[in-house]
Design a protein around this nucleic acid. Sequence first.
DNA 1: TAATTTCTCTATAAGACAGATAGAATTTAT
DNA 2: ATAAATTCTATCTGTCTTATAGAGAAATTA
Lengths: 146, 146
Amino acid sequence: MLSKKTKYAINALVHLAKEYNKGPILISTIAEQENIPQKFLEAILLDLRKAGILNSKKGKGGGYYLMKAPDQVDIAEVMRLFDGPIALLPCVSYKYYERCEECKDEETCGIRDLFYEVRNETVNQLKAGTLANIIKREQRLKHKNK
Amino acid sequence: MLSKKTKYAINALVHLAKEYNKGPILISTIAEQENIPQKFLEAILLDLRKAGILNSKKGKGGGYYLMKAPDQVDIAEVMRLFDGPIALLPCVSYKYYERCEECKDEETCGIRDLFYEVRNETVNQLKAGTLANIIKREQRLKHKNK
DNA sequence: TAATTTCTCTATAAGACAGATAGAATTTAT
DNA sequence: ATAAATTCTATCTGTCTTATAGAGAAATTA
């Protein structure tokens, strides 16, 4: 399961994506509207800035805003930033590869082979899941439910 | 990522699947051959027994053995038993559903929509991943690498 | 210079994770 | 009946992660 940190991060990013190119948004605004504890959100946005996804401005009229276009920020990136690997086994992780200590032969491991396929499919889905894509999904669902 | 508990469980199950219908196998044998701390493995096998996947016999000649055929035990079941939900968000979990506190409208949530698709694909893959399937994969890989 | 807002640093309470320890209960073989 | 083998139960512990809260420093703008 995703940590709250990651969930909050995604919600904040979607919020900012909806206001893309409209100038900085206050932390407090995002915190209120997205139901996120403000102090926790501060840390999250800071991490997103350090990762180059957001930028910030201090003082009056300040706040946070997206550095990249909403179709250039995908969920795989956000998840890796906060929760680490997307793979379910360290031995099939691309960015965080590590050998399984208990494993006898990685090359012929059937368990690894299965989880390698799972990882690939999941990463593909999450890379297609950009902020723009999520907003599009939301619009589609709103139409449907009317 | 899977917990060590789940990883050990899968390894132990694959081991037992290879000896299906050959009588009980000692905990100590599995622990040694699969590089699993014995006492930890005891707890794991006990849980698998309580879940109806394994059965055990005490005393001399005792040990653990599979209750179901290797093609009837899938990895989704094992993961759920030890690590809980497979879904990445509680609001898209079938067996462990829970509302996201911070969510404004579940019905039209684009984030939920994305993770719903991810969950479905992952569960399908993991249900196809039975013990028999894993052993078949291993055999294929051994052939290839010769 | 005063107000606004982000940024830094520290602390912490609760729970999960990965085992270790000690011994009780059961079964089989002699 | 007894000894050996083996699973089963219950408790405990140290380390790490999660999800915050608090106090105030630094920067920016009016």
